[in-house]
Design a binder for these strands. Structure first.
Length: 491
RNA sequence: GCCGCCUUAGCUCAGUAGGUUAGAGCGCUAGAUUGUGGAUCUAGAGGUCCCUGGUUCGAAACCAGGAGGCGGUACCA
């Protein structure tokens, strides 16, 4: 039964959570990154590049233990026995960089950074183990003015990336307000930190699980549809009411800040937080026309945010090819983290920043099909006579010099196959010169896009072939002109 | 990590109460239509039926373990 003599070959495949990318996809991402970077640069942020690997202790709490050194991050032990890890975001490397080069840097230090980051966790739709982030941070400036600027720039960057103003919302909250809530419900003391974490996790799920789900999580616990059970925070009923009211403060037509203020009145950090949000509001030009809302149901990272926090979300659910909603997560987010550099320096350095999740954004735009038609391929010059290759390459050169992407067909196939190739490359135009044209000093320009459009209502192939409505001839000397005119017509 | 479902051709999927040469559509390759892609016709290639082990005269099918995928859930800087 088993076949003999069959060599066992490795299976060609990409590791899970990673992906190959080709052609148009890369071009699109490059374009989106360029647009976001341009926004950051126009605000005066300088580009920074740091290596993919960092010493693991510089990245934070994920010191690899012997059992699970790769929990969350990809780590390996260098030949000098030190642990190094692939960066999981761009903020930790920034903190390291600032601490390392503190004295000569201008303060505040404004930098942006674009690049891949890696996380060793379960992949899902729009969720990869390698993805691109696009961050901008201001280090060394206290709240709220730097926060206001970052927040406004965040909106500009997302818009520049191709999401319209009415398609997304930047939600703003403040960690201090959440602290105020904890004071109100008696969770402020040191030994209650675990319950606090628990409550924050539950609150973070408000948008996904809704009021009912969060009530369960705050109380006794919740069983999900797969039968798994999550233990609850076991709060008193009245405290649950307070938390729910807090989460719902942004709903309805009232003013969210006012609602919050009533809930957390009398707490020091709560009032500080409200004041900071007011400061942000008043420091953003044309605030009312921007898609920014105060919404305290946003929690984000549990550990390090110390002040204002931002999160950008799509307004409407993203659907996949089958029309099913996809959990794609936020478009990006950020906030103030005054303690991060202190890990290295011992002194608190105030800092605030945002991160745009470019890979997610592109997945979403792809699903929403708002990135427009496919990027056109190159003009293909058919190679009908092998002894004329130099003259074909000459044509390609002329087109390139005129700024037109062009290539000569280099395979070994016949006429029909060459056109098929051009079709597959989604070439807009094919340039044809066989013996007939060459004798007459001409070329044939074939408008592939137009042909494709016309062919939709073609029935008789014979008539189609005889007419050839989508092509015309031109003098060899007019090559560039004729191609450019054809391309222009397609726009 | 936990729970559930799934894995047969490049893709989408049939299939058999365990029984010789495992199928379809699309795609692919080649040819026809006398130098023309998308139409039509003809032919062809391509499968360790996810892997390993077990039960059996016989396993793609049944059992166990593993891997991968999907969905939920937990964690998430």
């Amino acid at each position: 039964m088993a076949k003999k003599n069959k060599p066992s070959r490795p299976k060609a495949r990409t590791p899970r959570g990673f992906s190959d990318r080709l052609g148009a996809e890369i071009i699109k991402e490059r374009e989106v990154l360029a647009r976001i970077s341009a926004v950051y640069e126009s605000y005066g942020f300088d580009p920074l590049e740091t290596p993919a690997f960092e010493y693991t202790d510089a990245l934070g709490k994920f010191l690899p233990d012997v059992d699970r050194p790769n929990q969350g991050v990809f780590s390996l032990q260098d030949d000098d026995d030190q642990w190094i890890s692939l960066r999981y975001d761009l903020t930790a490397p920034l903190a390291r960089f600032v601490a390392q080069n503190f004295d000569p840097l201008p303060k505040p230090f404004r930098r942006y950074q674009v690049g891949p980051v890696w996380r060793n966790e379960k992949p899902g739709p729009g969720r990869f183990r390698q993805f691109t982030q696009c961050d901008a941070d201001t280090v060394g400036a206290p709240a709220p003015y730097a926060d206001a600027e970052i927040c406004a720039m965040f909106c500009d960057a997302i818009e520049a990336a191709g999401v319209a103003r009415n398609e997304f919302t930047v939600k703003v909250s403040n960690r201090k307000i959440v602290d105020g809530l904890f004071e109100k419900i008696g969770l402020a003391s040191e030994e209650k930190w675990e319950t606090r974490l628990n409550v924050m996790r539950s609150m973070d799920k408000f948008d996904r699980l809704g009021e009912v789900g969060v009530r369960h999580l705050l109380g006794g616990g919740r069983a999900d549809e797969s039968g798994d059970y999550t233990d609850g925070a076991k709060l008193d009923p009245e405290h649950i009411e307070t938390v729910i009211a807090f989460l719902q403060s942004a709903e309805g037509d009232g003013d969210p800040l006012g609602n919050i203020e009533k809930l957390i009145t009398g707490t020091k950090s709560g009032e500080d937080g409200v004041a900071e949000l007011n400061g942000i509001k008043s420091a953003i030009p044309d605030f009312a026309r921007r898609p920014i809302v105060i919404d305290c149901s946003v929690i984000r990272g549990l550990e390090y945010y110390t002040g204002p926090i931002f999160e950008a979300d799509f307004n409407e659910a993203i659907l996949d090819e089958k029309g099913k909603p996809v959990q794609i997560g936020s478009l990006g987010g950020g906030g103030r983290y005054d303690g991060l550099v202190a890990r290295f320096k011992g002194v608190e350095v105030p800092a605030v920043g945002v991160s745009v999740g470019v890979s997610r954004l592109l997945t979403a735009l792809e699903l929403k099909k708002s990135l427009g038609a496919n990027t056109a391929g190159p003009v293909v010059i058919l190679a009908l006579e092998k002894d004329q290759m130099a003259s074909y390459q000459q044509m390609a050169m002329e087109l390139r010099n005129a700024g037109v992407r062009a290539e000569v067909y280099l395979g070994g196939s016949n006429f029909a196959k060459q056109l098929k190739y051009a079709d597959k490359r989604s070439s807009p135009v094919a340039v044809i010169q066989g013996p007939d044209e060459r004798g007459a000093g001409e070329i044939t320009i074939k408008d592939l896009a137009l042909g494709a459009a016309l062919s939709k209502d073609i029935e008789d192939n014979k008539a189609w072939r005889e007419d050839q409505p989508a092509q015309f001839s031109a003098p060899r000397g007019d090559l560039v002109k004729a191609v450019k005119e054809t391309l222009a017509r397609e726009r």
